[in-house]
Design a binder for these strands. Structure first.
Length: 477
RNA sequence: GGCCCCUUCGUCUAGUGGUCCAGGACACCGGGUUCUCAGUCCGGUAAUCGCGGGUUCGAAUCCCGCAGGGGUCACCA
């Protein structure tokens, strides 16, 4: 049995989004679970669409997600080169085989003429087929002219790993360009040669290619190549469910998610379950579980909407379940800059308090800033609090002064803070929602925080008392 | 327009003739957790399974038709 080899073959036209990466993930999982190889191939046959820096960006994205490939443009391998623009001679050689066999011919029409043919067909509501306009005699290959494949129309019955058995009519088959006039191959031609030479066993690609498969099958036959197994994944639709996720409208660069503090495991679990599940009630999968459980034929045939809320949920869930050690490692680049003045052990304590509140790591800064930085008093916080705004300034100040007095005598251990502040509650005959909110605002300049006692404990006695004093003096002015 | 594909709660989905007047998760709503936010626990709203015909004792599940959506028909991939 041959080793399973799958590939991801993006063209360098920009960044990678969830939709394209999902296809890569499926291919990667398939390779991994069969101990096979996963190959990265860059399909840069359209120079005009190429975006500077894309290849590096694509590689960075794959690596960031852990979708490591065994062969690729930057690491080489036995079947390289892995960039199509470096393989031009190979395509030419294979194209000539077709010419020699009488299965390819040079384009004889100008662009305008072709456009006219299409327009006429459109007007008469007939499908336009190049094969009806072939040159009478095959004319060989002419440098500087496009080379077109001479098809042999027929019906096909083939199997798609996701869509099942598919039947296509003759009309789906037509002549098409395999080499452009600039000497570069088209996707339609190059990918077939490359997959063959690179010994790809399974092609996983998205559904915009489904309609072209019969043409590919025809070409495989002419080339006398056995086609690999094919799996067509449905498109991922944007949140509105109307059109597919695309760079143009709504899709976000995967690296952007990573930069905002989405975990790679969250992105992977999310992408995998966008159109796939294992038939059980499990909703979130680790990478290892996916490698074990994923199966291409359980992938949904209908397109799935991209729902960022579900991604956010998965991310929060995984963050909560992280070891504090792991979380601390992952958090490194997300601290407010003032945090660098504090020891890692202190950062760790902060992290422990905010961990279960984090939905993505980018929230660390906002949730932790007051632990590291002295903030100006914001009087609006009291006004904005439904309950506190009922009190007069004098009453507020009195409460703060009473708190100050009590806290002065505390050793600031959590238990003691709890005890003393609960006593104060009774003495003032006040509700926790009022007194504790007030102390929270004074000490954090924030409407919410982790538990008050834990927060005060971590802030320490000096800072807590000073902040309350500062709040009082601000209110006195 | 031709050809092809798709259609279960708002969203991701389970479901392959009976245990489904449809289950789970996200989202949303309500309640508990004797402080806020988050979390967590409990509960709730939500799909007559696109529509219409069949087949069958019985259909989300099989068949036919229709509709809607999507893809494709490039010297783009």
């Amino acid at each position: 049995m041959n080793k399973i080899r799958t590939r991801f073959a993006p063209s360098p036209t920009g960044f990678l989004h969830v939709g394209s990466l999902r296809t890569a993930l499926f291919a990667w999982l398939m390779a991994k679970q069969n101990n096979g190889d996963f190959i990265l191939r860059i399909e840069d046959t359209d120079k005009s669409r190429e975006v500077e820096g894309s290849i590096e960006h694509i590689i960075k994205s794959l690596k960031a997600l852990g979708l490591n490939y065994n062969e690729g443009p930057d690491i080489k391998g036995p079947y390289g080169p892995y960039r199509q623009s470096d393989r031009l001679d190979i395509y030419k050689e294979w194209a000539m085989k077709l010419v020699d066999k009488g299965r390819a011919y040079s384009e004889i029409y100008s662009e305008e003429e072709l456009q006219n043919f299409r327009n006429e067909a459109k007007q008469s509501k007939e499908p336009f087929l190049y094969r009806n306009f072939r040159p009478k005699k095959l004319n060989g290959y002419k440098e500087g002219q496009a080379l077109r494949f001479k098809s042999e129309p027929k019906e096909y019955l083939y199997n798609d790993l996701i869509y099942g058995d598919l039947k296509t009519p003759k009309e789906a088959i037509d002549d098409f360009i395999i080499l452009k006039s600039d000497g570069y191959p088209t996707y339609n031609f190059a990918h077939i040669i490359d997959d063959y030479l690179m010994k790809i066993t399974h092609i996983i690609r998205s559904s915009e290619f489904l309609a072209s498969v019969p043409k590919f099958l025809n070409l495989y036959e002419a080339l006398e190549i056995d086609p690999p197994k094919m799996a067509t994944a449905p498109a991922v639709l944007g949140p509105d469910g109307k059109k597919k996720l695309s760079k143009r409208d709504n899709a976000k660069d995967i690296l952007e998610y990573l930069n905002e503090g989405y975990l790679k495991d969250a992105l992977i679990s999310f992408m995998a379950t966008l159109g796939w599940n294992d038939g059980t009630r499990q909703e979130i999968f680790s990478v290892d579980q996916l490698i074990q459980k994923f199966s291409i034929n359980k992938v949904q045939r209908s397109p799935a909407n991209f729902d960022e809320k579900r991604l956010l949920y998965i991310n929060g869930y995984l963050i909560r379940n992280l070891d504090l050690d792991e979380l601390q490692v992952l958090s490194k680049s997300f601290w407010p800059k003032e945090a660098q003045n504090y020891q890692e052990s202190y950062q760790r304590k902060v992290l422990a308090l905010i961990q279960e509140r984090l939905k993505y790591l980018g929230e660390i800064e906002a949730l932790s800033l007051f632990f590291f930085k002295e903030l100006d008093v914001n009087k609006n916080l009291i006004k904005d609090n439904n309950k506190l705004r009922e009190f007069t300034n004098e009453q507020i100040i009195k409460m703060l002064e009473a708190s100050l007095e009590v806290l002065l005598e505390s050793d600031f251990e959590v238990d003691d803070l709890q005890l003393k502040l609960n006593d104060l509650l009774q003495k003032l005959n006040q509700k926790p929602a009022i007194l504790f909110s007030l102390i929270r605002i004074a000490t954090t300049q924030s409407p919410s925080s982790p538990g008050l006692f834990e927060t005060l404990n971590l802030l320490g006695k000096d800072r807590s008392l000073n902040r309350i004093k500062q709040q009082i003096s601000a209110l006195n002015n």
